[in-house]
């Protein structure tokens, strides 16, 4: 088995997840990002590469810019662990990133 010599990041190294089936490599997200954390993939049509993961602000601009719904934010573990919900009637706790996620509860924003 072989691998590559790579530096490790002090912060999260994976901040965005692209759905390869949905991403067409249009790079609208690359140009929308205020921190310029991504570069286009050298292979046209493929998803961008997050080069400056530690500079991501998690503003969600890329997610909103994507016409194909291909991008998901991946919060740093330190933030995931602190956001706790507790179901009032059962006392059951859950959080973002838990091993067995709750089913989604889709509530539309006001105005939309």
């Amino acid at each position: 088995m072989s691998g590559f010599s790579m530096p490790s990041f002090s912060g999260p190294c994976r901040v965005l997840k692209f759905d390869a089936d949905k991403c067409v490599g249009c790079n609208l997200c690359v140009d929308a990002c205020p921190l310029d954390v991504m570069i286009p993939n050298p292979e046209p049509g493929l998803e961008p590469i997050v080069v400056f993961a530690e500079e991501c602000w998690f503003c969600g601009g890329c997610v909103q810019e994507c016409p194909h719904g291909a991008i998901t934010l991946i919060f740093p573990a330190k933030q995931r662990i602190s956001t706790i919900f507790k179901r009032k009637d059962t006392g059951e706790e859950f959080r973002i990133g838990q091993k067995k996620p709750m089913p989604p509860n889709i509530v539309p924003p006001s105005g939309e």
Binding site: F94, I96, N105
Partner: peptide, 9 residues
């Protein structure tokens, strides 16, 4: 908002 929705909040 969207993340919490997805997580079932």
């Amino acid at each position: 908002f969207e993340t919490w929705n997805e997580a079932g909040f």
